[in-house]
Design a protein around this nucleic acid. Structure first.
Length: 495
RNA sequence: GGUCGCGUGGCCGAGUGGUUAGGCAAAGGUCUGCAAAACCUUCUACGGUGGUUCGAACCCACUCGCGACCUCCA
């Protein structure tokens, strides 16, 4: 539809035509959140960027199975010898069961995603629910001679793997360079090589999250869940693997190597990476302590925030930049995003109120019609060029000028003809709502509106304008609202 | 240190060898009982130096500044 989609593939470092392995089916995997804390702006960016990609692929007619995992086990907090995973750590602080922490933050994540109008993925598997699959994959890797056990833990043998494959081909690393630069970390004496990474970790006695395995009680390594889960639901290879650019190395590199080692096949055909949100020139990240959670943003409760910003403001803010560029966070930028978002939404409202012109046949403004048609097409061209939402939004603002001109009577719909008008209407509405995923955030409450009417009602009554009094009462009655004059004033109730 | 990326007007941010990106903010105008919105106009920038070219913000070299990954990270 509307030209051909080109996407930037991190694996090949260039834009390529998007050719799914089994069209019209598309398999897409995204590294989801680790649920040991509230989601922050970075989580939102990734989710919004890939949500938009998901929406656009569906719009193009693809049948997309979108898998986004929930990481609820096993990531080491710091050094391997501590053997404490993040979730267990947090659980102790809060005196909660680990799975209670997982549930709480999973719920919180889902709430945030709903507010951001991020569509739920097709499948949202948890790591803890796929321990057997992970163990099986580890066994395959061992069988292939690319993993080894040491004292109840299992490691991936990077050197052996690199003999037949290229460890580092995704992130552009060279094993020799990596080796030349490895820092000695404590607790790595079990490894044959500093580059080797854990597939399975033996649980220390105090470790809360643990599962039985052929190597004793333990928990899966950091990377194995994604390899096991993605291939389970999407096959191998599948079409698209996504995630934040900070996951590129080592996480995605390891995922790729594990899958390759276990099944002698590529993990994914296309790798997409969204860039980061920066603040004061620096990456916003949990470990840097400069992350703003979504809750803080929506409530305006953070020292860096001048005010609260709504979910749709954030969504627009994110999508006004290309997904592979960094975005600078600032109050000024958020404020600008809010105003831009409102302008776009008001255009949608205007559009629904405009009458569809009948074709008069004569008097069409060919130039104007051509211009609108051109802008409509360019919305598709922008999205087809590696999901360039920034450029697409610019086109929508161009269309918006015409839409507002139509409303003001500065431009007559008859000059456009019904075909162009319908094209304008459909394109604008489709891109704003279905693809950008923007929706109205109306804060107007019905009771507040009724109160205003009650004021006018009372005033009219005092002035003995009974026609108006009766009219207000009758019209509210039609809406199921009855007015009642009492000695205490005017009340209303549902009827 | 290794690898990679970025530096665009007051702010955010596309783009890329010759054509207005767009939004926000600001100024002027049209409209208007007031206000707002909308529309029109203005502000025409690409870190620095040198080179290639008829022509570079876009290519090349050097240089300055910033950042990301290499450890958990969206």
């Amino acid at each position: 539809m509307q030209g051909q989609l080109k996407v930037y593939n991190t694996l090949t470092r260039q834009k390529e035509h998007f050719l799914p392995l089994n069209p019209p089916l598309v398999g897409m995997y995204l590294c989801g959140p680790t649920v040991y804390g509230k989601a922050h702006l970075g989580h939102a960016r990734s989710a919004i960027n890939f949500d938009t990609i998901f929406r656009y692929l569906k719009h193009l007619g693809y049948q997309v199975r979108y898998v986004r995992n929930i990481t609820d086990v096993g990531h080491l907090e710091r050094d391997a010898d501590e053997g404490i995973d993040k979730i267990a750590q947090q659980a102790r602080l809060e005196s909660l069961e680990p799975m209670e922490v997982v549930q709480r933050y999973t719920n919180s994540y889902h709430q945030d995603m709903d507010l951001l109008n991020v569509q739920p993925p097709s499948i949202e598997p948890s790591a803890s629910g796929h321990i057997p699959e992970q163990i099986t994959m580890i066994q395959q890797i061992i069988k292939a001679g690319l993993g080894y056990e040491a004292h109840g833990s299992v490691y991936f043998d990077v050197e052996a793997y690199n003999k037949a494959h290229h460890y580092g081909k995704l992130s552009g690393r060279i094993v020799e360079d990596l080796l030349a630069d490895t820092r000695p970390l404590s607790g790595q004496q079990e490894k044959h090589n500093p580059l080797d990474f854990a597939l399975w970790k033996k649980a220390t006695p105090g470790h809360l999250m643990r599962w039985p395995s052929p190597w004793g009680e333990g928990f899966p390594g950091w990377h194995i869940e994604c390899s096991a889960i993605s291939t389970k639901y999407l096959g191998q290879p599948f079409d698209i693997h996504g995630g934040g650019i900070d996951l590129l190395f080592p996480h995605h590199e390891c995922e790729l190597a594990q899958a390759q080692a276990a099944s002698h096949a590529e993990l994914a055909k296309y790798w997409f990476h969204n860039n980061l949100i920066t603040i004061r020139g620096q990456k916003m990240g949990k470990s840097l302590g400069n992350a703003i959670t979504l809750e803080q943003l929506f409530k305006g409760r953070h020292p860096l925030l001048d005010q609260a910003y709504s979910p749709m403001t954030l969504r627009f803010f994110v999508l006004q930049a290309h997904y592979r560029s960094t975005i600078s966070f600032s109050n000024e930028a958020l404020q600008a995003a809010r105003n831009g978002y409102l302008k776009l939404m008001n255009g949608l409202k205007v559009l629904t109120e405009l009458p569809v012109p009948k074709d008069s046949g004569a008097g069409m403004d060919q130039d104007m019609a051509a211009q609108i048609k051109h802008s409509c097409n360019r919305c598709y061209e922008a999205m087809n060029d590696d999901f360039n939402t920034a450029q697409m939004i610019a086109m929508l603002f161009n269309l918006l000028k015409s839409i507002n001109a139509l409303r003001n009577g500065q431009l007559s719909p008859y000059l456009l003809g019904s075909t162009v008008f319908e094209n304008l209407k459909n394109t604008y509405a489709t891109f704003v709502q279905d693809i950008l995923g923007l929706r109205q955030e109306s804060s107007v409450s019905a009771t507040a509106l009724i109160d205003i009417l009650l004021g006018l009602y009372s005033q009219a009554k005092v002035q003995k304008q009974y026609d108006q009094v009766d009219a207000i009462r009758a019209q509210l009655q039609e809406l199921g609202i009855a007015l009642q004059d009492t000695p205490m004033g005017v009340h209303w109730c549902y009827t």
